[in-house]
Amino acid sequence: MLKRQWKHREIMYLFFVLPALIFFGVFVIYPFIKNFLITFYSWDGINEMKFVGLEQYKKALFQSPDFWKPIKNAAFLALMGITVQNGLALLLAWIVDKELKGARFYRVIFFIPPMLSFVVIGFLWKWILEPNQGILNIFLKNIGLGKWALAWLGLRETALPTVAMVNIWASFGWGFVMFLAALQGIERDIYEAARIDGANNFQEFWKITFPLLLPIITSVSILTILGAMQQFDLIYVMTGGGPAGATEVPVNQMYMQAFQNGMWGYATTLGVLLGVILFLISIFQLQIKKWLVDW
């Protein structure tokens, strides 16, 4: 009797989750599988698809710079994100957590850039960095550093680092908020005990704060890498992938292949390959997190 009642309940539960399951299946699982299948076809986005097997994977991985060059650029953005962006976010969160005067004000200020869209940020910085009338170069010239007044987005050497700096400016607020929340979750008693034992600020940070923050550092790092590797709007607005392809990133390349060259199958292949790379990076980072926590 009880068993029958339980079975009945199970069916009822299934009915409760069914709408969500259907929604998830139709809008997530099906497009995911369909997307993967398209990579085996040459497709102009409108007409019938032509089966080409692994041809597009071969082209992307071994025959053309369309994939690896943008991946290299995106990897640079990710590297800058993990080191400079997250380092800055952690440092600022740590300072604000020290009950600094006006901490609330800084909390708001640091969180303003992430509230803006990348398109707005792109135009704003493009205006600031304009080589002839931009306020950065005018400022540099006025303080006697005219030699440093470069065409920041127009030179191969400076374009990608400049975009990376703007990306950092636009994104560090997310890490800041997450680090601050984690810092505030650490029991103050631990610090008091450490102080009684004679620990200085650096030791407190290195022996208490950092180990306790490791899980959140890993999560923020994964999000930073995912965000940087999928950057598009900022590059599209600021450089369009130039000069001479110096700032091309994977999503930018996909957009061009799909919408400019009408090669939807190939663009989808680039997307799947990027997805695989991001998946592997995330697995690797989670393994590192596990290893660090065990250690």
Partner: peptide, 9 residues
């Protein structure tokens, strides 16, 4: 060319 012409002016 204007300075920085390849940079999106």
């Amino acid at each position: 060319f204007i300075n920085g012409i390849t940079g999106g002016i």
